[in-house]
Write a protein that binds this DNA or RNA. Structure first.
Lengths: 226, 226
DNA sequence: GGATGTGAATAGGTTCACAGCG
DNA sequence: CGCTGTGAACCTATTCACATCC
């Protein structure tokens, strides 16, 4: 029994994979809209995002949006529907822990845009970094983590600390109320079951690609993909 | 018909997911070995990596390694077996295209360690960056991409260029002989079927975590995980 | 005619559960 | 006994294929 009681009218919980693709559709629709596109077909969405048309229709089912058989989907309406489904009405706050090379790159990546999902603070154990503004974002010492997370009602933490510190910082984030973590540290975090963790393991990704690139060389027929 | 003819003795092709986990097992075993561990059970591996014991045994089946029922797996032997399976005997060369914030962070991340999988060059369109050594790695103008990739027999490319340039640079990489790409650009690359692409979409990852962190809040029972 | 929405079929990946072994 | 190795069951995700609609 996974899907507990939920407010009537909200369709069945969409899967992890589906949520990821909805995010891709949203970005693509945003671009399409900017280019003045009024209507778009599932096969166009599919080809721009790199999935099958059936997959697109299936995913859109799960947010309960319907297109018209003769003109496809209304770009703007669909965009809004996905945003309503994916985003919190008042936005969500994010913090980043670990302002090293990777942490700074991530900060730079998300700074500015994304009013709905803003990095409101960063943390680092290095006293040289703490209490300064780095890439438009105030950096605090780790000791202030709980205070800042609570005051700013932070939902999500991005972990770019060294592997050795990751579990500890994750626990502090969770204790302070964070329920979602993007984890770049190459360790399996132990968190309570209500906390969602997305691991981004750069070393693993590179090794995987290296492996399959080698397979392609041996056997030019069998290309993997993702 | 997926598995074409293959040299006798090589077990069935392992799936994408399995390869990823083998990389995690390898890293974990490396640490375990450093700590002097001789033998290790599937349930220990599982708990350290964050999967189930049955999953571990199933994955190890696919590389044809067998443990002993009473003492588990020989740490060192298993480590070696995974390395033999995953790694090219003479290593593989990697290049990185796009030396922006993210590109530099990735360079720093992989610099030094990893003799088997080395970033041998980087590329950038900015003339200020080209022809300098950045983070221990020579940066070339994009015009030299084909030459460098061929000369150094590069298998894998890491794409950290802006979305607008990604498809073009990817095509150059592929034309020069690259058969695996780690793609950080938020676009769906169109590549031949023999080229393996692993997408790392930071914006998507963050949006996904934000979504599920919100779910956890509403319904503290239903925690997602990955 | 060419789309959408969707039940049914298929494919894939994970877990169960148990025989076999040291 | 408690582990490994593994067929079989299960569960999830994707794709097929077709009724339906403009």
């Amino acid at each position: 029994m996974k899907t507990g009681k939920r407010p009537a009218g909200i369709p069945a919980l969409a899967s992890d994979r589906t949520i990821g693709r909805l995010s891709l559709y949203r970005r693509m629709l945003y671009n399409a809209k900017s280019e003045g596109r009024r209507y778009i077909y599932s096969h166009e969405i599919a080809s721009l995002v790199g999935v099958t048309p059936a997959q697109v229709r299936r995913d859109l089912m799960s947010i309960g949006y319907s297109g018209s058989p003769n003109r496809g989907y209304d770009t703007n309406e669909l965009l809004r529907s996905i945003e309503v489904f994916l985003y919190a009405p008042d936005g969500q706050n994010v913090v980043l822990a670990g302002v090293g090379n990777l942490g700074r790159a991530i900060l730079a990546y998300f700074t500015g845009r994304r009013p709905r999902l803003q990095i409101v603070a960063s943390f680092d154990s290095d006293p040289m970094k703490a209490n300064r503004v780095i890439l438009g974002c105030r950096c605090h010492p780790l000791s202030e983590l709980a205070k800042v997370v609570k005051e700013q009602r932070v939902d999500v933490g991005i972990l770019t600390v060294p592997a050795s510190a990751a579990q500890d910082v994750a626990e502090n984030l969770v204790a302070a109320g964070v329920t979602g973590i993007v984890n770049f540290a190459p360790v399996a975090l132990r968190v309570p079951p209500n906390v969602y963790v997305e691991d981004i393991d750069l070393a693993m990704a590179l090794e995987k690609v290296a492996f399959f690139s080698r397979q392609s060389r041996k056997e030019p027929r069998a290309g993997g993909n993702e």
